[in-house]
């Protein structure tokens, strides 16, 4: 099991103490591998200070992540909705415990005031709680019985679509990140997430939270790296069922074209997304399939 870093680790170093610099890893299949490419890249703060090195994921890492997500899908989607809700709520509890660390990371990445950073962290944790509460309501809200003209039981229920490649927003490294991951897994799909390239550290910390939570390995896989390098491969991958193109910027059109070859479900980027607004079901339903079951009624 990966070990938790204590939140105090980022406290100012004692005078004269040499800081321990960090090179982070990917989060794939519940473990923390380095990129198979051996590459990493420097992450800097809003004002240009070196913060840490992050792994620079390769297409092979993306492929491994898809394999992990596919392997995890059967078990995760097969859990009861109540159990998924319990696990997600437990993640929210752990996020709360890391609030100060997330605020530090946001402040470093985005600049601005500490109060603003704390506000965004609070909103992110609340967003996670919001989706934890959706797990066992989606089927009731989105599914229904159908009054067909004949002696048949007929019912439509939503099911998770499968493996979703999620491109997290580039400019909302925590609230945006949880806002795109949580709805995918709340409904039972599994995710391969490509983080903000510039500000990946909140995602790295989220990975550490997920790794020590009850979330099964492979349900969320987190790749730090470059969208232009990873996205074309994920958009073409035949074992990826859907794409959330939120963080892909100018590449979105090309990726949607690539996705057409395997008829992936595609959530297109929206202009001027307000991450603080109530998302409703808008990020859940794009990754659902509707299954309709018929059975005759008779003695």
């Amino acid at each position: 099991m990966p070990r938790l870093r204590k939140t105090t680790e980022r406290a100012p170093a004692a005078p004269g103490r040499l800081a321990v610099r960090k090179t982070y890893k990917l989060y794939v299949n519940g473990a923390f591998p380095r990129s198979e490419s051996g590459r990493s890249y420097p992450v800097t703060s809003a004002d240009g200070r070196h913060l840490a090195n992050a792994a620079l994921a390769s297409r092979k890492d993306a492929r491994d992540a898809v394999v992990a997500a596919r392997k995890a899908f059967g078990g995760w989607s097969g859990r009861t909705a109540y159990n998924r809700g319990q696990i997600l709520y437990r993640v929210a509890e752990m996020l709360e415990g890391r609030a100060a660390q997330f605020a530090d990371e946001l402040l470093a990445a985005e600049g601005g005031t500490r109060a603003k950073a704390e506000e965004l962290v609070a909103a992110a944790i609340d967003r996670w709680v919001y989706y934890a509460g959706w797990t066992d309501k989606i089927v009731q809200v989105v599914g229904n019985a159908n009054p067909v003209s004949g002696p048949y039981f007929n019912q439509s229920t939503p099911e998770p679509t499968g493996v979703v490649a999620v491109f997290a927003p580039q400019d909302a490294p925590l609230l945006g990140l949880v806002s795109v991951i949580a709805p995918v897994i709340a409904a039972g799909s599994t995710a391969v997430v490509v983080t903000s390239e510039r500000a990946p550290l909140p995602a790295v910390t989220l990975a550490e939270v997920l790794a020590t939570s009850d979330l099964p390995g492979g349900v969320v896989n987190i790749l730090t790296g470059r969208v232009p390098e990873l996205a074309p491969h994920l958009a073409a991958h035949a074992d990826v069922n859907a794409l959330d193109l939120t963080g892909t910027g100018d590449l979105a059109r090309e990726l949607e074209e690539t996705a057409a070859a395997t008829l992936k479900r595609v959530l297109r980027p929206r202009e001027d997304e307000d991450w603080t607004a109530d998302p409703g079901l808008s990020r859940i339903t794009p990754f659902l399939e509707t299954k309709t079951v018929w059975h005759p009624v008779g003695v």
Binding site: S149, G150, N154
Partner: peptide
Amino acid sequence: GVIWSNTFNKFDPASP
């Protein structure tokens, strides 16, 4: 998307 159990090829306007 459609599972027919103990029947097949049934359609109805109310059924997705």
